[in-house]
Every structure is written in structure tokens, then in C-alpha cells.
Design a protein around this nucleic acid. Structure first.
Lengths: 103, 103
DNA sequence: TGCACAATTCGCCAATTGGCTAACTGGCTC
DNA sequence: GAGCCAGTTAGCCAATTGGCGAATTGTGCA
């Protein structure tokens, strides 16, 4: 594997890794229905706000969401709508997965 | 978030997590061109065989690849071709990502 | 100014990940 | 059977992840 293609795979995995968490998948799903502020998401998810905030900043860093401050609140929304198609593929795959994962 | 939908998000993230690694992305890419045995992949990737073997078993456990023993060798191939579309979306996103990820 | 609320950042910690080497299993050939 | 090659499993370890509470920053309002 060449150094350049290795960098390519690393860049892609960075984006995929951002989606590889139940809470962040939920956030993406929720934001696909419209923008939400951090407090709203926190209430829906059921973990502490600092945790949600970090999930959001991670999604922002890879370009999946963007934020906008309005007063004391920060609203987040999706930047890449193609994520929906992406998730559809996962859903179809989901029905056929089996076994345990151990790594 | 309800318990059932939380289980749904967890199941999906399990599949996405399987793809969230440069080496495993490379494997999927390589297998999209045809089946390969573990030794072939090991030479292409440049890490030790046990490591490659574990990446492969993880991909198998979530249903992305399947294996077939032929003599002393084990050949792997893709089970879900829709992965390609999945990755195309990532590639387009890739060009627009910025910033650092720290979580 | 002072208080309350929204959000982020900082330390801390337990659990997971991903690499390695060593050991083990199974097939093929001499 | 002995030796070799392909592959997996096991044990170890460093680095990362993801949660929490505490502390900090910033905005709006009385």
C-alpha cells in the first residue's frame, strides 16, 4: 500500500469513525429532521451535556454537521445530506449480520 | 431515545465501526476487485498476518465479507456490494472536511 | 452588577482498540 | 511421521475512546 493511498484510507476512516457510535448516529438521524440545539439533543439522548457537546464537535470537525450560535444557544444542522443514503445501505446490511465481534 | 431504537443505533454503529479503520477500508477496496487469500492481503498491507486475520474476522462477523477454505488457504470476498456506494459518499465528503478531531 | 442558563473545556478513569510475538491448528509434501 | 506453509488464537501492552463531574466561558435578563 503506497503512502498516498494509505493517507487516503486514513482520511476516509476518520469520517467513518465519526459515524461509528450509537449516539452520533442518533444525532445525525435527528438533525436530518431539522436543526437542534445542544440542550434539546441532550434531553433526547439521555447523557450529560459535556458528552453530547464533544460528540457534536467531533461531527463538526469531519464536516458532517455545522453549528450556528444564536444568543446563548448553539444550533447544529447537517452539512452533508448524502449521509442518508449512506445509512440506508447500513440498514439493509444490518438484517444480514450475525456472530460476535471481538477486536 | 427508546430502548429499541437505541438497540437499532447500536447495531448500525457496529457495522460502521467495522469499516472505521484504514486497513479494513483497504481490504474492502481490494476485495471489490476479486477474492484474495490472507497471505496476499498481508503482503499488500504491510502488517503482520495475525493482525490482518483479526481485521478479516471482524469484517466477517458483521457480514461484510465471507470466507472459503481451499486447501491450506482461506479466501475472502465481499458479501455486500452496496459498500461501494457507501464509500463513494465518503469520498465526496472527504474533500470538504477540515479541522482536527479530538475525542 | 449579579444571577441563571447554555455550552464548552479540562481532568480523571474504565473499557476498547490495534499492534506485536508466541503458541497452536490444519493441510500438503517429502 | 517430519517439516513447512497458511491461518487463527492467546497474551501482552500502548494508545484511543467515551463517560462523568468540576471548572470555565459567554449570553440574556432582572
Amino acid at each position: 500500500m503506497s503512502a498516498t493511498s494509505q493517507a487516503q484510507y486514513k482520511a476516509r476512516s476518520r469520517i467513518i469513525k465519526a459515524l461509528a457510535h450509537p449516539t452520533r448516529l442518533f444525532i445525525v438521524d435527528e438533525l436530518s429532521r431539522g436543526e437542534r440545539c445542544v440542550r434539546e439533543l441532550t434531553e433526547l439522548i439521555g447523557v450529560e451535556m459535556p458528552t453530547v457537546s464533544r460528540h457534536l464537535s467531533l461531527l463538526r470537525n469531519v464536516g458532517i454537521v455545522e453549528d450556528e450560535k444564536r444568543g446563548a444557544q448553539v444550533f447544529y444542522r447537517l452539512r452533508r445530506l448524502c449521509i442518508r443514503k449512506f445509512l440506508e445501505c447500513i440498514e439493509t446490511m444490518q438484517t444480514n449480520s450475525q456472530g460476535t465481534d471481538s477486536l
